[in-house]
């Protein structure tokens, strides 16, 4: 399959697309935590990192099958997610965000100081296993899963907590349980993404999972439109492509990236798809298309959109 793709596609594009799919899985995890459940997390990259190291190490040391390694990465991250979810009992809003940031920095420093992770030198020699096809399939599964979660009793409980946690509790929703669950599931997604990432780059360094990465993922989720799955997909795609597109400007590229973040926020403060409901929009577009095809009745009531 991969061979086939390579005949039609330049290797560089394949790599960029693979990266987009991987990051999308991680971003969907944060979407569940922050976008759906409303719990601020400034430390999502730490879960990606935990997943990446867990997957890579179980491959290198135990020689487990690749997909099992990725799954283990997801589970390791989920476990850490449970740990981080508990403070959400006492901390809300920005304070929770700050605590997650602190947790993530501690994780980074620990990864930096462990022998098994190779410390600051990084971890090399991870076999290349992640393919575009696999990343794409898993990203699609992640999107599908997210839609299923959101349209269920479980998902409605998460949204209720975001909208009004006190009302949610009075509706019989155990806030702590659902918040911790959201952290666990969201971190599982991050960990799976990390496992794929490790077997894509073949090299890991703790500095790649610092708060800059966390904020990058947060930006994916917010810029597309917080709480919206298409928004997360779009945000991840645009912001992963952006540095590549800006590559022509060489050293100014990250400068422009930063600038564009500010500009996009100013013009679309609720995100690119924030407040846009895709389904009615699609219906309206179809409607107006049909309208154009049929001649006007001349009663003056034909609404154009």
């Amino acid at each position: 399959m991969e061979e086939l793709l390579r005949q039609y596609m330049n290797l560089y594009y394949i790599q960029v697309l693979t990266l987009i799919c991987i990051m999308m899985i991680a971003a969907l995890g944060l979407h569940l935590i922050t976008g759906v459940t409303g719990q601020l997390s400034f430390g999502h990259a730490a879960f990606v990192g935990i997943g990446a190291y867990a997957a890579a190490l179980s491959n290198i040391h135990w020689g487990l099958p690749f997909l099992i390694c990725v799954l283990l990465g997801g589970l390791a991250a989920a476990l850490a997610g449970v740990l981080v979810g508990f403070p959400s009992m006492r901390l809300t809003g920005d304070y929770l965000g700050i605590a997650t940031l602190g947790f993530a920095e501690i994780v980074r420093v620990i990864l930096m100081n462990m022998d098994i992770t190779g410390g600051a030198r990084g971890l090399a020699g991870i076999p290349r296993e992640t393919t575009l096809v696999l990343a794409f399939v898993l990203a699609a599964v992640a999107i599908w899963t997210m839609y299923r979660i959101q349209d269920s009793r479980f998902g409605r409980a998460l949204v209720a907590i975001r909208e009004d946690d006190i009302a949610a509790e009075c509706n019989g929703i155990n806030g702590l349980w659902y918040k911790v669950s959201a952290f666990a599931i969201g971190s599982f997604f991050a960990g799976v993404a990390g496992g794929l990432y490790a077997h894509f780059l073949q090299y890991l360094n703790p500095s790649g999972f610092g708060f800059a990465k966390s904020f990058e993922i947060l930006t994916f989720v917010v810029l597309g439109g917080l709480g919206s799955i298409p928004g997360t997909v779009l945000g991840t795609t645009i912001l992963t492509l952006l540095p590549e597109v800006l590559r022509f400007s060489a050293e100014y590229r990250m400068m422009m990236y930063g600038l564009l973040m500010v500009i996009m926020m100013i013009f679309r403060p609720r995100g690119l798809l924030g407040g846009v409901d895709l389904l009615p929009l699609l219906k309206r577009m179809l409607y107006s298309l049909r309208k154009k095809q049929t001649p006007l009745n001349g009663d003056g009531n034909g609404r154009s959109v």
């Binding site: 899963t145 299923r148 979660i149 349209d151 269920s152 009793r153 479980f154 998902g155 409605r156 409980a157 949204v159 209720a160 949610a168 509706n171 019989g172 929703i173 669950s181 599931i185």
Partner: peptide
């Protein structure tokens, strides 16, 4: 959806139910 959330106590479905249905 507001009312369906109010009906939380009627159901039991969790994550597994949400995905597998």
């Amino acid at each position: 959806d507001n009312v369906r959330i109010g009906a939380h106590g009627i159901g039991r479905g969790g994550l597994f139910g949400a995905i597998v249905r």
